[in-house]
Simulated scan of single mutants.
Amino acid sequence: MMIVEATIFAGFGGQGVMRIGQLLTYAGLKEGKGVIWYPAYGSEQRGGTANCTVIIDERRSQVVSPVVKYPTSLVILNEPSLLRFEARLMAGGKLFYNSSLVKSKPKREDIDVYPIPANKIAEELGNVMAANMVMLGAMAAITKVVDIDSLKNELTTIFKGKSENIIKLNELALEKGREAALQL
């Protein structure tokens, strides 16, 4: 059973790395858990590197530090992020990677690996921009850090002012990511 889940989300700017980190944080808050979201940006433009750390503590205690040396999970959206963060994942940790874009195979054998064809799934849904939600749905299904319905319920917060179609697309992307992970 999860006590503290520390996840690093990483990819290029423009892939929605920060958005899925925020969504996970909001869902954890709504479930009454202790949470922290810590963003880190590379270049200040689309295409630069971006990562964020989300820590969720089900004991509802205050999370005291955003710094995580060895995360319990990694959600990797691009090749450079796999190369940068794989070694940091704790032994026995879970590595979720976008197999549509990441062509290298993870090298470690002491971790659980979940290749998710996120771009392919998102394209089938009609919008490649939903690949980030596919990855988050996969991660949530396996780690059970938050309930997938909590993520869906917080989409209106993340996409405030956006159309109902955007929210529905992202709900479906979360669900398709869940399904993909559970089939592995």
Results as ranks from 00 to 15, higher is better:
residue 2 M to F: 14
residue 2 M to P: 01
residue 3 I to V: 11
residue 7 T to N: 10
residue 8 I to S: 05
residue 10 A to Y: 05
residue 10 A to I: 10
residue 12 F to H: 02
residue 12 F to N: 04
residue 15 Q to G: 08
residue 16 G to C: 01
residue 17 V to W: 04
residue 18 M to T: 00
residue 20 I to T: 05
residue 21 G to K: 09
residue 21 G to Q: 03
residue 21 G to I: 08
residue 23 L to A: 02
residue 27 A to T: 07
residue 28 G to P: 00
residue 32 G to W: 04
residue 33 K to D: 00
residue 36 I to K: 11
residue 36 I to Y: 12
residue 38 Y to H: 12
residue 38 Y to D: 03
residue 41 Y to M: 03
residue 42 G to D: 08
residue 42 G to S: 03
residue 43 S to N: 01
residue 44 E to M: 14
residue 44 E to V: 06
residue 45 Q to S: 02
residue 45 Q to M: 15
residue 46 R to E: 01
residue 47 G to T: 09
residue 49 T to Q: 08
residue 51 N to H: 14
residue 52 C to M: 02
residue 52 C to T: 04
residue 54 V to G: 06
residue 58 E to G: 05
residue 62 Q to A: 11
residue 62 Q to R: 11
residue 65 S to C: 12
residue 67 V to N: 08
residue 71 P to Y: 08
residue 73 S to K: 05
residue 74 L to V: 10
residue 74 L to F: 11
residue 74 L to K: 04
residue 75 V to I: 14
residue 76 I to C: 09
residue 78 N to H: 14
residue 79 E to K: 12
residue 80 P to T: 13
residue 83 L to E: 13
residue 85 F to H: 14
residue 85 F to Q: 07
residue 92 G to W: 02
residue 93 G to M: 07
residue 94 K to Y: 05
residue 95 L to Y: 12
residue 97 Y to H: 11
residue 99 S to Q: 09
residue 102 V to S: 03
residue 103 K to S: 15
residue 107 K to Y: 02
residue 111 I to F: 05
residue 112 D to C: 08
residue 113 V to H: 03
residue 114 Y to K: 01
residue 119 N to P: 00
residue 119 N to W: 05
residue 119 N to V: 12
residue 121 I to L: 13
residue 123 E to P: 00
residue 126 G to F: 02
residue 131 A to I: 09
residue 131 A to M: 12
residue 132 N to G: 06
residue 134 V to C: 10
residue 135 M to W: 10
residue 140 A to C: 10
residue 141 A to F: 04
residue 145 V to Q: 03
residue 146 V to A: 05
residue 149 D to E: 15
residue 151 L to F: 09
residue 152 K to Y: 05
residue 152 K to S: 09
residue 152 K to D: 11
residue 154 E to C: 14
residue 155 L to F: 06
residue 158 I to P: 07
residue 160 K to T: 09
residue 160 K to G: 02
residue 163 S to A: 14
residue 166 I to D: 08
residue 172 L to G: 00
residue 173 A to N: 09
residue 176 K to Y: 10
residue 178 R to M: 10
residue 180 A to V: 00
residue 181 A to Y: 12
residue 184 L to K: 07
